[in-house]
Design a protein around this nucleic acid. Structure first.
Lengths: 244, 244
DNA sequence: ACACTTATCGTCATATTGACAATAAATCGA
DNA sequence: TCGATTTATTGTCAATATGACGATAAGTGT
């Protein structure tokens, strides 16, 4: 017999956010230093308990804002996966609903003596075991990276790592960082500009850098992602990462 | 200030399962008739409260088994998405972690006078509003169908709807039912048999039906899905559903 | 044996990809 | 100011994949 509603078990529920960005050609994840037990002093994903009256997405955005010290979080946020409640937290059962943020690099509140201190860390160092993270957060980060890698194949979400306007080369750099591969600039350019409903040329160009100035693009209206709504599979056929 | 662990809010957590199968060329979903308030007498997804000491996947499998009357559930089960805790249940906040099962058609415990009674219902009738379901289960079913549609594009999970061995035509029928399109038998045959690491010919043939006997295939080892592990993107390049 | 049905193999035009040449347009350094 | 260098963009070409459909194979039903 299932538990009656009169007496269902109740669990603490947290949200954790895997915020990814591209920095210096490498994928980075936002981590905070924990100031309380358990795992005090160790790195962990930003996150915390869901409050009564709050939605999951709302809670994720709030925790991320609180712990990174950024009021208005940029980028694209979606739910990733739920973990638990068994065997994740030494204090007992805790269910966590992990979220994924793909965002342009934004400055976060660095560590003070008393603040927890957020920072961007190279994802590769986590996956290589060079950096340790608390709880099952390594698993969560792995899942998040795999999700991000897969999303770039068919969705316009690569652009979530860029600002409003960007060059094809910047977008390509995102793909290269997330996929950890090199892509042929010419073939990438062809695919990006040749896919209907993906990018629109703004008419302006980026200057200042060495080399020929690049045309600036923005996402086409059909490709814009709005909070809450599912992302459209604009890249059809998809842009597959090289196998090898 | 976030809630301290000493006093986190606790929520009832349920699992719901969207079990999909293909029946008579159409996609069907497993629904039960509720025997308790709220929504007593209405159709709903099988599901129920997570018990202390239980994992999410475990709870989903248990609830599905209990409510369908089937001890050993066949097919492929994965987590879909979490919903809530706000505004889903008239009794108050309830977080639900929805799961997706893709399975061959299996017989379920039909309604008795006292049992809840499970049954397969055409998904299309839900999406068309011809059939009503309780809570936010219509949304969950929609998300599940979209997930299933997308999975068939790149993963071997179409075979999860078939038995261990199946013909190309049976597999194609799955694709046609899930995608709600017709596919060219010859081109589908070419793609299915021509994709390395997808299918292996068993050497046997299916007989009895009208027409030429078809060769029986099974999933290649590389394409086998094991509980828990992520599915491999075997269909590369993917088999995209027709756009139209 | 014949009609019918379904499976499987082939063909061909078109679309897409991967590899790479060539040109365009800026900055940088002497 | 003039290359040299750097990056962007346009093309080319062969290999691969897809979409549309013809033709053949191998059963069942009469």
């Amino acid at each position: 017999m299932p538990a009656a509603y009169s007496d269902p078990a109740r669990f603490p529920v947290t949200v954790d956010v895997v915020a990814l960005t591209v920095n210096e050609g490498a994928l980075h994840v936002l981590l905070i230093t924990r100031l309380i037990e358990p795992f005090c002093g160790e790195l962990a994903l930003p996150g915390g308990f869901v409050l009564p009256g709050e939605g999951l997405r709302e809670a994720a955005a709030r925790e991320l804002a609180e712990e990174s010290g950024v009021a208005q979080i940029p980028g694209y946020l979606e739910q990733l996966h739920s973990y638990g409640p068994q065997g994740r937290d030494p204090r007992g059962d805790v269910l966590t609903v992990a979220h994924l943020l793909l965002a342009p690099n934004f400055p976060v509140l660095a560590a003070g003596s008393d603040a927890s201190g957020a920072g961007w860390y190279p994802v590769q160092k986590l996956l290589d075991g060079e950096l340790q993270v608390a709880f099952d957060h390594l698993l969560i980060v792995s899942d998040a990276v795999e999700r991000a890698r897969s999303k770039l194949e068919y969705s316009p979400l690569g652009a979530a790592f860029c600002g409003e306007e960007f060059t094809i080369a910047q977008l390509r750099a995102v793909y290269e960082a997330v996929w950890d591969t090199r892509l042929d600039p010419r073939n990438f350019h062809r695919k990006a500009t040749g896919t209907p409903g993906f990018l629109v040329d703004t008419g302006t160009v980026s200057g200042g850098e060495a080399g020929r100035p690049a045309a600036l693009f923005r996402l086409a209206d059909e490709a814009r992602f709005v909070p809450g709504e599912p992302v459209r599979a604009v890249l059809n056929p998809p842009l597959m990462r090289p196998r090898g």
